[in-house]
Amino acid sequence: MFATKRLGKELSKMQSGLPNGIELIKADDFKEWLLDIRVVDANPIYQGEVYRIKFMFSPNYPIEAPEVVFVQDESHPIPYHPHIYSNGIICLDLLDRTGWSPVHNVESVCISLQSMLTGNTKKERPPGDENFVRSNTQRPRDINFVFHDPHV
């Protein structure tokens, strides 16, 4: 109920306008939304690519953090970033249980991800990406990341 109410408000706000480079793709229910982001500033790593983000909300949103991952399809790759695994899982403190705050919202998360990409200069995956991608069966919200570098 809480989540529905709040997401309804977020949705109507987003439908009336979103920052440049962020686009709402699908929000048919209050469980799963799809948004596209692209890096607006010139960054050769992300030039000309559009990334798709999937939000999954629990009924306790926004008290509980949403699960946010990049999803891959023919036209949407997983962006290269030292904190984004090649299966789309994002290691970002504000999406973690302890880093999340209910004052965040879908739009602010998108903006955070966008600026996280904009500021990146290394076209690489996190260390141990292959192992992690091969062995991980957990959902993003159950993973306890160690946030080595809070500034990225």
């Binding site: 809480f2 109410k5 709040r6 008290i63 209910p102 919202n105």
Partner: peptide, 20 residues
């Protein structure tokens, strides 16, 4: 929290958690 407002209200009066 569940009330429906007739017109959109000033953003200064909105709670950042429930967006109402």
């Amino acid at each position: 929290h569940l009330l429906e407002y007739v017109s959109p209200c000033d953003s200064n009066l909105v709670c950042l958690i429930c967006h109402a």
